[in-house]
Amino acid sequence: MNVDKAQKRIEKRVKRGFHGYPMISIRYFGPTAELATKVEVAFIEQEAAEPMVENFSSTGDIRKDETVQTTIIKIIDRVDAKTVTLDEKITLQLK
Rank of each mutant, 00 (worst) to 15 (best):
I76E: 01
D65T: 10
K64R: 12
T71R: 08
Q69C: 01
F43M: 08
A49L: 04
F56K: 14
T59P: 00
V68D: 07
D61C: 05
V79A: 08
V68R: 08
D61K: 10
E50I: 05
T67S: 06
T71E: 05
D80M: 10
I73E: 05
E50D: 12
D80W: 05
K64I: 02
I44Q: 08
S58C: 02
V79G: 06
F56G: 09
A48E: 14
F56I: 08
V53Q: 12
I76G: 00
E40F: 00
V53R: 15
G60S: 13
V53E: 13
D61Y: 09
E66S: 10
A42F: 05
T59Y: 10
I75H: 09
I44V: 14
S58R: 00
E54C: 13
I76Y: 00
V41A: 10
V39M: 08
N55Y: 15
G60W: 15
I73G: 01
T71N: 07
F43D: 10
T71G: 06
R63I: 06
I72D: 01
I44W: 04
K74I: 01
M52S: 15
Q46M: 12
T67Y: 11
E40V: 05
I62N: 00
K74L: 13
I73T: 06
A42Q: 06
A42H: 08
I75N: 06
G60C: 12
A49S: 15
V53P: 03
I76C: 01
E45A: 14
Q69Y: 03
D77Y: 04
T67K: 13
V39A: 02
T70V: 11
A42K: 06
T70Q: 11
A48R: 11
V39R: 06
K64P: 02
R78M: 08
E66L: 11
I75R: 12
